[in-house]
Simulated scan of single mutants.
Amino acid sequence: MKKLTLALSATVMMASPVFAGDAAAGKGKSMMCSACHGVAGISAVPIYPNLAGQKEAYLTKQLKDFKAGKRNDPTMKGMVASLSETDMADLAAYYASLK
């Protein structure tokens, strides 16, 4: 019985991704991102990367790097300037949740 419970718990955990940020809140904050990265995180313009399905930790790191000036892009610098740590985590969770 203990093995069955453990197996079922593992299955549920694998079926439902757990995100550090709040994907629903991130969706509400994503409108400014959609102009370049597309409404569903798939860009129509090749110079802008697709965000949908990227790993949450990767997206969070990139946003933090833009904000800290470790990555240099004038457009992104302006876009992330007002984002809080929570905003960045939420946006990363949202885009990571998309297919």
Score class of each variant (00 low, 15 high):
I47V: 15
A93T: 10
R71E: 08
H37V: 12
P46L: 13
L6R: 00
G26T: 08
D73C: 12
K2W: 01
Y94P: 02
K70V: 05
S16C: 10
A25Y: 06
K99M: 04
L63H: 13
A52H: 10
S84I: 08
Y95I: 08
M1S: 12
E56H: 11
M32P: 02
K55P: 02
S97Y: 03
T86F: 04
S84V: 09
G53V: 14
V80Y: 07
S16Y: 07
A57Y: 02
G21W: 03
T60V: 08
M1G: 11
L91M: 01
K67R: 11
H37M: 05
F66N: 12
V45D: 14
S84D: 08
A57G: 06
L59Q: 07
A89L: 02
V39A: 15
Q54G: 10
G28E: 01
M88E: 04
L4K: 02
M88A: 14
G78I: 10
K70G: 13
N50Y: 09
Y58E: 07
L6A: 01
A52K: 11
V12M: 09
G28F: 05
P17V: 14
V12D: 00
K55D: 10
M32S: 12
L8R: 00
G26W: 07
L63P: 04
A92M: 04
A25N: 11
K64I: 08
L91K: 03
G21T: 07
L8T: 00
P49K: 09
K64S: 15
S34M: 15
A89P: 02
R71I: 09
C36P: 05
A96E: 06
K70W: 02
V12K: 00
K70M: 07
Y48M: 03
G78M: 14
G41L: 01
K27H: 06
A20M: 13
I42C: 03
D22T: 12
Y48L: 03
G26L: 01
S82A: 15
A92S: 12
Y94F: 14
E56C: 10
F19N: 01
M32R: 11
H37Y: 02
M13E: 05
S9P: 00
D90P: 06
A10S: 07
P49S: 12
M32I: 13
A96I: 06
M13W: 08
T60E: 12
A35W: 06
M76K: 11
Y58G: 13
A10E: 00
I42M: 13
V80L: 11
A92D: 05
K67F: 08
A96Q: 05
A10P: 01
L63I: 13
V12T: 08
S34W: 03
V80A: 11
M88D: 01
D22P: 10
Q62H: 15
L8N: 00
L63M: 14
